[in-house]
């Protein structure tokens, strides 16, 4: 089994709350220098920069897991990962159709920049991306899973995390894998989760300085998106391990 350091929660200059210096070449350099071999760009409610990041990652030997951070109707943040860009597009199209169209005011909410492979800005995303979908957590999870994806609730120990928004995780809504921000919170959080879940921790970087050394490793047979998703599903002996 390989032990692969990963960071599956990163924001680019497209997320209104992220720094405009979050560009593919510079981010790839930082990932590589921290020994991270698998990474996911998970902008809020859009996947417009994922294709560009995938190409730059690939040129530098980092595997991209197609992903997005969706905001549910309950304002719960969910990390959604897919096998292919095709499945990610299908998910993001439905998500895009489900949140209100508010023109983004960059001076108020932050710039939402689309970039190219040379770290240049080529456009702005017109609608505010920090809105909540009209689709519920159950609906978005169902959609992602029907498309072959895996859903990991974001930062349980922070605002917009499942536990903050909805107070508890009941057995009928349990997940296989959750994300926490601070490893130190694990003792506090684990007893509140039904079943025997896995925990991952990512940088959730919104600026270059918060891109951290790896916080967990994937235990997988080979470096492929399929293997990563299998580990997130905790199937066939594949799993994750916090560092």
């Amino acid at each position: 089994m390989l032990e692969v350091p990963a960071d599956l929660h990163l924001h680019s200059c497209l997320s209104p709350c992220a720094d405009i210096t979050m560009l593919p070449r510079e981010m790839t350099r930082r990932l590589a220098s921290r020994g991270i071999q698998v990474a996911s760009l998970t902008d809020h409610n859009t996947a417009c920069n994922v294709g560009v990041f995938q190409r730059v990652f690939q040129q530098n030997g980092v595997l991209l897991v197609p992903g997005i951070e969706a905001t549910t109707a309950e304002e719960v943040h969910l990390l959604c990962y897919f096998e292919t860009l095709h499945a990610l597009w299908a998910f993001s199209r439905t998500l895009f159709a489900s949140y209100p169209r508010i023109a983004n005011d960059p001076e108020r909410f932050g710039y939402q920049l689309i970039c190219n492979e040379r770290d240049e800005y080529v456009g702005q995303f017109p609608f505010l991306l920090s809105m909540a979908s009209s689709l519920s957590l159950d609906e978005l999870r169902g959609l992602a899973e029907r498309l072959g994806g895996v859903v990991v609730p974001s930062h349980l120990d922070r605002h917009y995390g499942l536990l903050y928004q909805l107070g508890m995780v009941t057995p009928e809504m349990q997940f296989i894998t959750y994300e926490i921000t601070h490893r130190i919170n694990i003792e506090k959080i684990l007893p509140n989760l039904p079943g025997h879940p896995q925990i991952i921790s990512n940088s959730d970087a919104h600026n270059l300085d918060s891109m951290s050394p790896p916080r967990f490793v994937l235990e997988i047979e080979e470096l492929s998106v399929h293997e990563v998703l299998t580990a997130l599903r905790h199937e066939r002996g594949r799993k994750v391990r916090l560092l």
């Binding site: 309950e74 909805l166 107070g167 009941t170 809504m173």
Partner: peptide, 10 residues
């Protein structure tokens, strides 16, 4: 304005 199932649980 929350209408998730957990509203009842809480």
């Amino acid at each position: 304005i929350q209408t998730h199932l957990n509203v009842v649980a809480v």
